[in-house]
């Protein structure tokens, strides 16, 4: 399936792309557009104005996708807290890794293309997911 989002990928779009590829559509292809009007007819838009999978209420797009696709994995919801704080920084969650994540993703947007940002950030989100999975299983900080 094709998925479209706005160009200039930052934390929320990078996290959404990872979520889509890992949990919704392993074959996902991503298109980056400058204007919502440029979204191809066969693509599902996300993290753009006026689309279903965008910011809803106080939620960032990553949280909206989790809700709309009924993904209830508690590890994903913990990752969502980090994405939410890195993107919105409104203090709703306690996610100490969020500022670091935001800095890394912003730096990636300065050093490479959107495709490069997705390629590099994918393993980062895998790592974040695995860390929180172990933490939830152990009930304490994993080694």
């Amino acid at each position: 399936m094709r998925w479209a989002t706005r160009a200039g990928v930052h934390i929320d779009r990078a996290a959404c792309a990872w979520l889509i590829r890992r949990f919704l559509d392993p074959e996902a292809e991503f298109v980056f557009v400058a204007d919502p009007a440029d979204v191809p007819a066969d693509a599902t838009p996300f993290d753009m104005r006026g689309v279903e999978l965008g910011h809803v209420g106080g939620d960032c797009s990553f949280e909206t996708i989790l809700r709309r696709h009924e993904l209830t994995d508690p590890v994903l919801w913990r990752v969502a807290e980090a994405v939410h704080e890195a993107d919105l920084d409104d203090g709703r969650f306690d996610a100490p890794e969020a500022p670091g994540l935001d800095v890394l993703l912003r730096g990636l947007s300065m050093t490479g293309t959107d495709e490069h940002t997705l390629a590099v950030s994918g393993p980062l989100f895998d790592a974040l997911y695995e860390y929180h999975r172990r933490r939830l299983l152990l009930g304490r900080e994993p080694a």
């Binding site: 706005r6 200039g8 930052h10 104005r49 006026g50 965008g54 910011h55």
Partner: peptide, 14 residues
């Protein structure tokens, strides 16, 4: 800039 524009876009939707 890209960031301020995006922030205000979300508020416009709100």
């Amino acid at each position: 800039d890209a960031r301020t524009r995006e922030s205000l876009e979300w508020l416009a939707d709100d």
